[in-house]
Design a protein around this nucleic acid. Structure first.
Length: 481
RNA sequence: UCCUCCUUAGCUCAGUUGGUUAGAGCAUCUGACUGUUAAUCAGAGGGUCAUCCGUUCAAGUCGGAUAGGGGGAGCCA
């Protein structure tokens, strides 16, 4: 069987030696016509493969170049060199795929920028940084399913193509099979006649699975979604993508506090999972970040390293406070009094700017913050109205360095209140008849939240740009690969 | 979309008040070397200075437009 091989991670995990094995992987470097640093992606650490003089023919020797894919058979022996405990003494080397050094853009001794690597995203998996990032991304995805599964949640697949344009979460990508050359069927008023379209109506890519998630929560009690989400906003930032993955739990019988507890427990659980299972990768990224920090002036450097930050987050309670209290803190802050905010806090009711969120999280509390009970005017129609008539049972979790990582709320289960709010916000009730049905047929208090997966990966890996934590990022003017 | 900065060799970057043939390190290629660790040593090749237009006797250098990228803002997850 061709694929009979041992993963390098397993070989390096044990100190035992003097046994035959087969490895396959990609050459990171070839020193002294003798030492291959071989990587198979199971870990960032390379296996040293030793090629004794005369062991392979000249053609094969020439083929051992950075980037080439090889199969090596031989004996694992204690290494004579200092950099590693064991190595493979090759008895045969086979070039599975050669690699032209003149054209291959990745060399171990070069330090390509993240921006350059983004242009060769099809190859960047072969770098230590992206190896670590995407192994951690995988671990987090696994931990998400494990967390919810162990709690008895049902994983619900919500539709990717949707006809509802109701939530107003952002601009949507249109989905159609109608011709784009101007010959699409038209109504009398000149607008496109979507009755002729594939679905017989106008459709889009989903911006959220929440509304559908609520439907299932009204039967299974506890559900979560984890799938791709699309926003056609012209956002050019380090924390927005046009295509991203979102986790949306929805839980019947939960109120806002239960919702916060679930979100906090969830975040700590998945981070802890990565810390337990991806220690080497996190240590590598910690070090990488430390070197990056050294390039910055003293005043701009982060107070904590990546590992310390993650430890701190899993071992400390998130700070919880209401929007109203946050406004008071911001208003009373020296920062505000000395007019250091670009947008000064003057009164209750305005939405917080990122500078305010950053101040609360990074300067005032120095830990993740959960803000609750926002003014109803700045939040979505489905959030439950509080008794004060001014606020809704919303909660946002703000993380250091990233900002909003979670947005959630207790949902409005009272039909009259919901209808009234929809009317005020000009949301067509007839389009959401199925959503409103749940408020007629056995409604119950329930709550949920949405968590941007890539922002979570950013937080755990310390990567500054969200485009570097998804394999093939989609953003304005960019859909290569 | 707005503000701001950037674009010089495959990569990371120098390039002075505008002035002769645009440099370095690494990578690559050729050769040497058989216990290397970002291996080392010798040699070689490699440039439409993002693109277009302008100012000037003369533009990598000054001005404008366009494209791409970074950082910040808005929208949000």
């Amino acid at each position: 069987m061709f694929n009979k091989r041992t993963r390098i991670k397993e070989l390096l995990a044990s100190d035992s030696a003097n046994y035959e094995t087969t490895v396959m992987g990609w050459v990171r470097s070839f020193r002294n016509n003798q030492f291959i640093a071989l990587n198979d992606g199971s870990t960032n650490n390379n296996l040293q493969v030793m090629v004794a003089l005369g062991m392979v023919d000249d053609v094969t020797l020439k083929g051992i170049s950075p980037g080439a894919c090889i199969k090596a058979v031989g004996e694992i022996i204690p290494s004579l060199g200092k950099g590693q405990k064991i190595e493979l003494k090759a008895s045969s080397i086979e070039i599975l795929g050669e690699c032209d050094g003149e054209k291959y853009p990745l060399q171990i001794k070069n330090r390509p920028s993240l921006e350059y690597l983004r242009e060769i995203a099809h190859l960047r998996f072969r770098t230590n940084t992206f190896g670590a990032v995407f192994r951690i991304r995988h671990a987090l995805a696994y931990a998400i399913h494990k967390f919810f599964n162990d709690k008895g949640f049902v994983y619900l697949h919500t539709p990717i193509i949707t006809a509802s344009d109701a939530e107003g979460a952002g601009e949507m990508f249109k989905v159609t099979t109608l011709p784009l050359d101007g010959t699409a069927p038209k109504n009398e008023d000149g607008t496109i006649n979507f009755k002729e379209d594939f679905f017989g109506r106008a459709t889009n890519l989903t911006v959220s699975g929440q509304l559908e998630g609520e439907l299932a929560a009204m039967a299974f009690s506890d559900i979560y979604t984890f799938g791709p989400t699309f926003r056609a906003e012209n956002s050019n930032t380090t924390r927005h993508l046009a295509e991203f993955w979102m986790i949306e739990p929805e839980v019947a019988f939960n109120d806002l506090e239960d919702n916060m507890n679930l979100a906090e427990e969830f975040i700590k659980y998945v981070i802890r999972h990565a810390m337990d299972n991806n220690k080497e990768d996190l240590e590598f990224l910690t070090q990488r970040l430390e070197e990056e920090e050294k390039q910055k002036p003293q005043t701009e450097r982060a107070e904590m390293g990546l590992m310390d930050k993650l430890n701190f987050v899993v071992n400390n309670d998130f700070e919880r406070l209401t929007y109203t209290d946050a406004i008071t803190i911001l208003k009373e802050s020296n920062h505000n009094k000395k007019k250091k905010f670009q947008y000064l806090i003057e009164g209750w009711g305005v939405d917080l700017q990122s500078e305010h969120e950053r101040y609360l999280v990074e300067k005032h509390f120095k830990k993740p913050v959960i803000l609750t009970d926002y003014p109803k005017e700045i939040k979505a129609f489905y959030m439950r109205q509080n008794d004060d008539g001014k606020t809704v049972a919303a909660m946002d979790i703000l993380a250091p360095g990233i900002g909003e990582i979670v947005g959630g709320s207790q949902r409005e289960e009272r039909l009259d209140k919901l209808m009234q709010r929809m009317q005020e916000m000009h949301i067509p009730a007839e389009e959401l008849w199925w959503y409103l049905d749940t408020r007629k047929f056995g409604a119950c208090p329930h709550a949920g939240f949405g968590l941007g997966f890539e922002r979570l990966v950013q937080f755990v890996t310390g990567m500054g740009n969200i485009r570097d934590v998804i394999p093939f990022p989609r953003y304005p003017k960019s859909a290569e690969f």
